[in-house]
Computed example of a mutant assay.
Amino acid sequence: MKKLLLLFTFIFATVVTYSQDDDTTVQGVVVNASGGVPMESVNIVNLNQVKGTATNSRGKFELSAKVNDTLHFSYLGFKSIRVRVTNDWIKYGESTIELTELALALEEVVVNEFKLTGYLEVDIKQVPINNNYRYSISGLPSTGYEAGKSSNAITKVLGAVFNPADFLHSMFGKQPNEMRKLKKMKQDDEIRNILANRFDREMLTALLQVERVDLDEIVRQCNYSKGFIKTANDLQILDAISECYEEYKVLSRSRRSGRL
């Protein structure tokens, strides 16, 4: 009887310990390295658990994290940093994180000159037209794929739908955790809010562990136009990749079932 009681106590203690580990959080305050002033609305994402938050008006934050998780801190105009969660941080409480301001550089702006004649019929022809279209495919639940106007646009769209397997699998097939992260990113409201206000792809590359050029190539292979890639915010890019992958899986299952 005593042995059973000891065994039960050991199992209960183990379960409680694991439960506590799963519920651990880290707290901290983010400040400007140059003056120590607390920074509000700094974006913080746990790259391992795919959970996000932002600092409050006093620069403070609290985020779910475990030992060895990596937190990504970013703020417009400041150098982003990654911080590893340690036992001491969880055990002893709040930590101070410093962000360093970046030097701002203005990019050259090219202004295209339009020679207006004063006649609407003539002048309107000088306005550039965005020839991007979305093609829907019967049986798919989305609005379809986007492509530039050309004689073989439909062929390219269908090719992109049936072929992204090669590219997406080469990018994520060996890293299935990254594809699971896509779903987690779409489910976390805080991360979606962060991505909706970003256009630099930095958070996406950090979460998906890919280079910026590879990220753009993924979207391009899914037949989204250069205009979309250039102007879309990070959330739209995330949704584009996720939509492309999910649609590929639907078509892939249909093709396999057709062979049976």
Rank of each mutant, 00 (worst) to 15 (best):
D22E: 13
D23L: 15
D23P: 06
D23K: 15
T24A: 10
T24W: 12
Q27G: 15
Q27D: 13
V29G: 03
V30C: 11
V30A: 12
V31C: 14
N32V: 00
N32R: 08
A33V: 15
A33D: 15
S34A: 15
S34K: 13
G35E: 10
G36L: 01
V37M: 06
V37K: 09
P38E: 04
M39Y: 05
M39F: 07
E40M: 09
S41W: 09
S41E: 13
V42G: 02
I44R: 00
V45A: 10
V45D: 04
N46M: 07
N46W: 04
N48I: 07
N48V: 14
V50E: 03
V50N: 00
V50G: 01
V50P: 00
K51D: 06
G52L: 02
T53Y: 02
T53E: 11
A54R: 14
A54K: 12
T55G: 05
T55M: 05
N56T: 08
S57Q: 04
R58M: 11
G59E: 02
F61C: 02
F61N: 00
F61T: 12
S64C: 07
A65Q: 02
K66D: 03
V67P: 03
N68P: 06
N68T: 12
N68E: 08
N68H: 09
N68W: 04
D69V: 14
D69G: 06
T70W: 10
H72T: 15
H72A: 03
F73Q: 03
Y75Q: 11
Y75T: 09
G77K: 04
G77N: 05
F78N: 04
K79E: 09
K79V: 08
S80Q: 04
I81R: 13
V83F: 08
V83W: 02
V83T: 06
R84M: 06
V85W: 00
T86W: 06
D88R: 08
W89L: 07
W89R: 07
W89M: 12
I90K: 06
I90D: 03
I90S: 05
Y92D: 12
Y92I: 08
Y92G: 04
Y92R: 10
G93V: 10
G93S: 03
E94W: 07
E94R: 07
S95V: 10
T96A: 11
I97H: 03
I97L: 14
E98R: 15
E98I: 00
L99R: 07
L99I: 02
T100M: 14
E101L: 07
L102I: 13
A103H: 09
L104W: 09
L104V: 15
A105S: 14
A105P: 02
A105I: 05
A105C: 08
A105D: 14
E108Q: 10
E108W: 06
V109K: 10
V109Y: 10
V109D: 11
V110F: 12
V110W: 12
V110I: 12
V110S: 12
V111C: 03
N112Q: 11
N112L: 10
N112R: 11
F114I: 05
